[in-house]
Design a protein around this nucleic acid. Structure first.
Length: 123
DNA sequence: ATCCTGACCCAAG
DNA sequence: GCTTGGGCCAGGA
């Protein structure tokens, strides 16, 4: 069987063909990588920027899988709230503060650090 | 197929 | 502020 056989996703013109969920996860990873140091975005915003508006929960799964390969600390809950528990939450806050992110109470000062994903390119 | 879980979100009260 | 309920989606058992 050729490239079109049982494992048709194997390759196509030398490129790995991704299934729907893999393509989605890849888009999510790209979006997360776009957040610069000192800025943050919410799970929902990342999902939307990736092109999957209602998949905020999947963003969590992707971050868990990726580990330190992504700047996971830059993704927070709605309103700038940290949603991790205990130690993990503390680590996220520390990492963000280390990047210069300021907090007001328990949440990120979103008016200063909200990353706005670019939707249109200007030329 | 069903049930459960999760680094979620949001409108209500 | 906080709690609750419903909605959302995908993975794993």
């Amino acid at each position: 069987m050729g490239a079109r056989g049982r494992d048709s996703r194997k390759l196509d013109r030398g490129l790995m063909r991704l299934g729907p969920s893999e393509q989605r996860d890849a888009a999510i990873r790209r979006a997360v990588r776009q957040i610069p140091r000192g800025k943050v975005a919410t799970y929902a915003q990342v999902a939307a920027a990736a092109g999957y508006p209602r998949h905020h929960r999947q963003v969590v799964q992707v971050l868990r899988k990726s580990g330190d390969a992504l700047p996971w600390q830059r993704v927070v809950g709605a309103g700038g709230e940290i949603r991790l528990r205990l130690d993990a939450a503390h680590e996220q806050r520390t990492r963000l503060e280390m990047e210069g992110v300021r907090f007001r109470g328990k949440r990120v000062a979103m008016d200063e650090h909200q990353h706005v994903f670019r939707t249109w390119e200007f030329d």
